[in-house]
Design a protein around this nucleic acid. Structure first.
Length: 371
DNA sequence: TACGCGTGGTC
DNA sequence: TGACCAAGCGT
């Protein structure tokens, strides 16, 4: 790692901010410095690309224009507004924080990094972003862009996948950040990280700060940032049950914690739970599943495989392969032993479907049409 | 600290 | 296809 003199720091600030003044991206949350606008955009942008966020942000602001409106929003409508963005705990934390602001802060924002971090869903990065952009505090906002940009500029060799590394970058950036325009400085780093200094296919030779980029000068830019590899998603095989009656389709609510927490979905049965000993054929597993539904839930249903091609969906840590099984039940079936309910297809529109639920429904619909 | 948490895009 | 990436946070 190299270090910069005060003179070099000032030259960097000027070069960066001059470039930002002429080339900054025109983004809907950059029209003002309203902390509510900055906050919502920053939460949406966590692990999510700008182009994906823009339409969600615009719609969200029409639907929930103020902290107050968010605090009192209907949770189902809030989740519907978030549908497709992923990491749904972000939306729930958003409302929790809005209620904190209304109930505990009399609607007045904390303006320091420490104060902002008291709010649900606001961690070190988002606190830094809001504090600098909305409240002009000279504090670093260390996200993936900052990691990438400063690792290359200064040849920082710390592993950015390790939590403790954030402090290393924070310390350095807090020395380099413009004390006059901290918000613009942080946003300029983000624009740089999204244009000339992306993770792959970057074109540093045209970057406005190429003269400050030690890794580029040394021809070793591809080595930065140093980041250890992630683990492969674990494969999990499920049966997905599309059980229909004249009352609709049978849904089950997922547990309050874990993946897709609280979502209503077609019931999923882990195929592993049906395998006691030797490897068995799919037909045997389906028979065992029918027996289990009858024994555990008093549901007598004949299941047939919809399509031999399973629905596949990959999350960060799991890869699901779902074999869809369909069946019919009488509308007066006793559901008191089954933790679920009938939902008519007409109600789907108002529900929040996860991507994998949408995939199951689409595949089922298509198979019905081709029959 | 390491891991769990979604989705869409790229190569 | 798989691997990796994209304005991280909570536990």
């Amino acid at each position: 790692m190299i270090t910069w003199s005060q003179k070099r720091i000032q030259a960097f600030q000027k070069t960066l901010l001059d470039w930002y003044d002429h080339h900054k991206r025109d983004l809907p949350w950059r029209k003002d410095h309203d902390p509510y606008h900055i906050w919502i955009s920053e939460i949406m942008l966590q692990q999510t690309q700008v182009q994906t966020v823009i339409p969600y942000y615009l719609k969200f602001m029409k639907q929930f224009p103020t902290v107050q409106s968010l605090a009192t929003a209907d949770e189902a409508k809030l989740m519907k507004a978030w549908e497709g963005l992923g990491y749904y705990s972000r939306a729930r934390n958003l409302q929790r924080a809005a209620r904190q602001l209304v109930d505990d802060y009399q609607g007045k924002w904390p303006t320091t990094v420490g104060g902002l971090q008291e709010l649900s869903g606001i961690g070190p990065y988002t606190a830094g972003a809001i504090a600098s952009i909305a409240f002009n505090r000279p504090v670093a906002a260390v996200d993936g862009n900052a990691f990438r940009v400063f690792a290359r500029l200064l040849e920082i060799d710390d592993d950015v996948a390790k939590p403790q590394t954030r402090k290393v970058f924070e310390k350095i950036i807090n020395q380099i950040i413009s004390k006059d325009r901290p918000g613009d400085f942080n946003q300029a780093i983000m624009d740089l990280g999204a244009s000339y200094m992306t993770a792959t296919n970057y074109d540093t030779s045209q970057s406005p700060v190429r003269a400050f980029n030690q890794a580029y000068i040394d021809g070793i830019e591809s080595q930065y940032p140093v980041k250890t590899k992630k683990k492969r998603p674990i494969p999990v095989d499920y049966f997905g049950l599309v059980i229909h009656s004249t009352k609709g389709y049978l849904f089950e609510q997922r547990p309050a914690k874990g993946i897709l927490a609280g979502f209503w979905m077609f019931p999923l049965i882990d195929q592993q739970e049906l395998i006691n000993d030797q490897p068995t054929s799919k037909q045997v597993l389906i028979q065992r599943l029918q027996d289990k539904l009858a024994a555990d839930y008093q549901l007598q249903v004949s299941l047939s495989e919809i399509d031999h091609q399973p629905v596949s969906h990959t999350f960060t840590h799991q890869k699901w392969q779902i074999t869809l099984l369909s069946g019919e039940l009488p509308a007066d079936s006793d559901l008191s032993f089954f933790p679920g309910k009938w939902i008519p297809a007409a109600d789907f529109e108002a529900m929040t479907f996860s991507k994998v639920q949408s995939k199951m429904w689409l595949k089922y619909e298509k198979s019905v049409k081709t029959l």
